[in-house]
C-alpha cells in the first residue's frame, strides 16, 4: 500500500531545503499529469509530494540577454499563449501545438516534461535543436545543463537528488527557421511514434548550421549528429535532401512496441526529416 506525505514549501529556499533533506524521496509536484499516473500505477509507492506549483521562482516567461527563460512550472498552455514566445520564437510555440491535448496542456509543465525524461517528451526535440539549457538549482548552488546532456536513459536524468529544474533557457537564434513534425497513431491526444525537429540557420545555397533532433527513436530524445554532418556545407537541392536524411539510420536506435516497429519508426523518421527540411526551406513537397 502506498504512503505519501504532502509538503508545500512557502518559499524557493524552503523548496531547496526540503529537497536537500528528502533527496529522491521528495517528488516535485506541479501539474501532476505524470506523477499522479505513476502513483496510481504503483510505479511510485511512497515519499513526499512537494507542491511546487506556487513557487514564484519557478514561474515566468521572460526575455533575458537574448534568451527566452521559461519557469519550470509554467504550463504548456501558458507557453503556447505567451505573446513573447509567439513573437520572438514562434517555432517553439508551433512545436507544442500537438502536445497531449488541451486538458493536459493546461496542467503539464515544461519542467515536468523534461524532468520526466521520457523518450517521447515532446518538448525535448525542439529544445535540442535550439540548443536550450536547463537551469538547475540546489542548496549548493545553480548550474546550467544543456538539454542535450540532460537525459541519461529512459526516465532518467542528470539531476542530482537534491536538485530541481528552475527554468529553461532558450537562446533566441539570430537567424534561421525551424520545423517540428510529430507522428502519432491517431490525430488527437497522441503519444509520438516518432517526432523530428529541425532548425536551419542558413538557407541561401548551402546548408549551414543545421540541427536535427528526434523523439521516440532512442532511449532518450536525441540529436542526430551524423545526419547534421551529412547535410552540413552541402548544396541545397531537393533531391539530395532525401539522401542526406538517410543518414538518420546511424543516429537512431528505435525499439518495437505497441506503437510501432523499429523499422517503421526508422523509415518514417527519415521521411519526416525530409519534410521538416522542406518546411524550413519553404520548399513545396
Amino acid at each position: 500500500m502506498n504512503n505519501f506525505k504532502f509538503f508545500k514549501p512557502q518559499s524557493f529556499k524552503e523548496l531547496l531545503d526540503i529537497k536537500d533533506e528528502l533527496l529522491s524521496a521528495g517528488y516535485p509536484l506541479a501539474g501532476g499529469s505524470n506523477l499522479l499516473v505513476y502513483i496510481k500505477e504503483n510505479m511510485v509507492k511512497s515519499g513526499t509530494l512537494i507542491d511546487i506549483s506556487s513557487i514564484e521562482e519557478l514561474k515566468g516567461i521572460n526575455k533575458v540577454d537574448g534568451s527566452i527563460e521559461i519557469g519550470a512550472a509554467e504550463t504548456i498552455t501558458n507557453i503556447l499563449e505567451s505573446s513573447l514566445i509567439n513573437r520572438e520564437l514562434p517555432f517553439f510555440s508551433l512545436s507544442l501545438k500537438d502536445f497531449g491535448n488541451p486538458l493536459i496542456r493546461n496542467k503539464a509543465t515544461i519542467g515536468g516534461n523534461l524532468a520526466d525524461a521520457s523518450p517521447v517528451a515532446d518538448t525535448a526535440p525542439p529544445l535540442l535543436v535550439l540548443g536550450a539549457f536547463v537551469s538547475v538549482v540546489s542548496r549548493s548552488g545553480t548550474r546550467k545543463i544543456p538539454v542535450a546532456e540532460l537525459f541519461t536513459g529512459p526516465r532518467k536524468n542528470k539531476l542530482e537528488e537534491n536538485e530541481v529544474i528552475q527554468k529553461i533557457i532558450i537562446p533566441i537564434p539570430l537567424e534561421g527557421k525551424g520545423a517540428f513534425l510529430k507522428l502519432g497513431q491517431r490525430k488527437g491526444t497522441s503519444i509520438s511514434v516518432t517526432s523530428v525537429a529541425v532548425w536551419i540557420e542558413s538557407s541561401s545555397d548551402k546548408f549551414r548550421n543545421i540541427k536535427i533532433a528526434l523523439g521516440g527513436v532512442a532511449p532518450t530524445p536525441v540529436r542526430a549528429l551524423n545526419t547534421e554532418k551529412a547535410f552540413s556545407g552541402k548544396n541545397i537541392d531537393r533531391n539530395s535532401i532525401k539522401t542526406f536524411a538517410e543518414t538518420l539510420r546511424k543516429d537512431i536506435r528505435p525499439i518495437s512496441d505497441v506503437r510501432g516497429s523499429a523499422e517503421y519508426r526508422t523509415e518514417v523518421s527519415i521521411n519526416l526529416l525530409k519534410r521538416a527540411v522542406y518546411e524550413c526551406l519553404e520548399m513545396e513537397e
Binding site: K187, G188, V258
Partner: peptide, 27 residues
C-alpha cells in the same frame, strides 16, 4: 483504422485508453 486489443502470449499490452486508442474529435 486504429483499434486492436493486443496481447503477447495471452498477456495484455493495451489495457488502458492511453494504449488502446479510440477515435478522438480530431480523428
Amino acid at each position: 483504422l486504429m483499434e486492436d486489443y493486443l496481447e503477447e502470449k495471452g498477456v495484455p499490452l493495451t489495457w488502458n485508453l492511453a494504449t488502446y486508442l479510440i477515435p478522438t474529435s480530431k480523428d
